[in-house]
C-alpha cells in the first residue's frame, strides 16, 4: 500500500520554482530518505506534505487524505520531528509528552500509559520528571523523536534527525529509528545530507534544484557507479598492470604510484587478486562507493558544497585521506 502519493507537486516562491513537478510514492512501512544539498527543495517538499505550506500546483495524498483539502486529517496522521529543537525547556520530559498527547487527542489513561511506553523506548524513563533544560543534545533529540510518534501517527517525518550530534549519538538515533519501523510499524520519511546515513534507508530520492534526479534503493544507486574501487600498489606496477589485463581482464589506471580500477563485489575479488598476481603486492585498499559518489555522478556536484565537479577518484582519495 502507498501511504504517500505525490503527483507533479510544485512550489513557487516569487517566480522561483523551489520544487518543480515532483512525483513519487512512499510505501507503508518503509524508511524513505530524501537526500540533497541545502536549498534543494527538501524542506519545502516536507512542509507541503505536512500541510505547513500550500503547493502551487500538483497533488499529494497522505494516508488517503489530500494535504490541501483534508489538512487536519493529514496532521493527525503524521508525526514531525523538526530540524531545530522544538521542546519546551521549562517543562519536564513527561510534561512535554503530555502536552503533545493532549493536543493530539490521546486521552486520559491511554495517554499516561503511552507516555511511559515511549519513554521506555527512547530510554529516558529515569529522566521522566526532569526539566528538559537539564538534558544533553542527544537526549533532547530522542525526546523529540519520541514525542513525534507518541500519538500513533502513520508517517513520521524526520528533518535532518542527526544534525549536530556526535557520531555515537547519531548511531544510537539510527538504532531507535530502525526499532520504530519494527515496533511501531511506522513509515519513516527523512531528509538528510549525510550520505553515510542515507544508506540506512530502504529507498532514497535524490533531489537537486527542486527536482528528483534519482529514486532507488541505496544498493541500486551504488550499482550505477560500476562497482567498488580497488587501489593496488605492487613492487612492479607495470607488470601488475599487464597481469591484470591478461589474467583477470581488468584495465587499471595508474595513479599516484598505484593502480586503480573498479570491480563488482570487491571483497570476493581481493583473494583472487592475491592468487593470480605474480607481482608482490604491497597494499590493497577497497573503497565501497558511497552515496556521495552517486550524488556527484548524477548532479556533477558534491553534496556539501557547490564547488563544481570533482573526479570520482579525487573524491575517493580525499575521503581516504580524511578517514586514514
Amino acid at each position: 500500500m502507498q501511504i504517500i502519493e505525490v503527483q507533479k507537486l510544485s512550489k513557487e516562491f516569487k517566480g522561483v520554482k523551489a520544487v518543480n513537478e515532483v512525483s513519487f510514492d512512499v510505501a507503508q512501512g518503509e524508511i524513505f530518505g530524501f537526500l540533497g544539498p541545502n536549498g534543494a527543495g527538501k524542506s519545502t517538499t516536507i512542509k507541503m506534505l505536512c500541510t505547513l505550506q500550500k503547493p502551487s500546483s500538483g497533488r499529494a495524498i497522505l494516508n488517503g487524505f489530500d494535504v490541501v483539502k483534508e489538512a487536519r486529517e493529514v496532521r493527525k496522521s503524521i508525526g514531525l520531528v523538526f530540524q531545530d529543537p522544538s521542546l519546551d525547556d521549562n517543562l519536564t520530559a513527561e510534561e512535554n509528552l503530555d502536552f503533545h498527547g493532549r493536543i493530539y487527542g490521546v486521552e486520559g489513561k491511554a495517554r499516561r500509559a503511552r507516555i511511559d511506553e515511549v519513554l521506555e523506548l527512547i530510554e529516558l524513563s529515569d529522566r521522566k520528571k526532569n526539566l528538559v533544560k537539564t538534558f544533553s543534545g542527544g537526549m533532547k533529540r530522542r525526546l523529540e523523536i519520541g514525542r513525534g510518534f507518541l500519538h500513533y501517527p502513520k508517517v513520521l517525518f524526520l528533518d535532518e534527525p542527526t544534525v549536530g550530534l556526535d557520531p555515537q549519538t547519531r548511531n544510537a538515533i539510527w538504532e531507535y529509528i530502525h526499532q520504530l519501523k519494527v515496533k511501531e510499524k511506522l513509515t519513516i520519511f527523512l531528509t538528510t545530507h549525510y550520505m553515510d546515513e542515507a544508506e540506512n534507508c530502504d529507498r532514497i530520492a535524490i533531489i537537486d534544484k527542486g527536482e528528483i534526479v534519482a529514486l532507488a534503493t541505496p544498493a541500486e544507486l551504488k550499482e550505477t557507479l560500476g562497482g567498488d574501487v580497488v587501489r593496488l600498489v605492487t613492487v612492479n606496477n607495470q607488470l601488475a598492470k599487464k597481469e591484470l589485463v591478461t589474467k583477470l581482464g581488468i584495465f587499471a589506471q595508474e595513479e599516484l604510484g598505484g593502480l586503480v580500477f573498479q570491480v563488482t563485489e570487491g571483497e570476493q575479488f581481493i583473494p583472487r587478486l592475491f592468487k593470480e598476481l605474480d607481482s608482490e603486492i604491497l597494499t590493497v585498499t577497497l573503497a565501497k562507493p558511497t552515496l556521495d559518489d552517486v550524488f556527484l555522478k548524477i548532479t556533477g556536484r558534491e553534496i556539501r558544497s557547490d564547488e563544481g565537479a570533482e573526479s570520482t577518484t579525487a573524491l575517493i582519495q580525499r575521503r581516504r585521506g580524511r578517514r586514514g
Binding site: R72, L80, F82, P85, S86, D88, D89
Partner: peptide, 13 residues
Amino acid sequence: EFGFLKEILVAPI
C-alpha cells in the same frame, strides 16, 4: 524563538 511554536502550529488544532 525556542521552536515550541512549531509544535503548536503543526498540531491538528
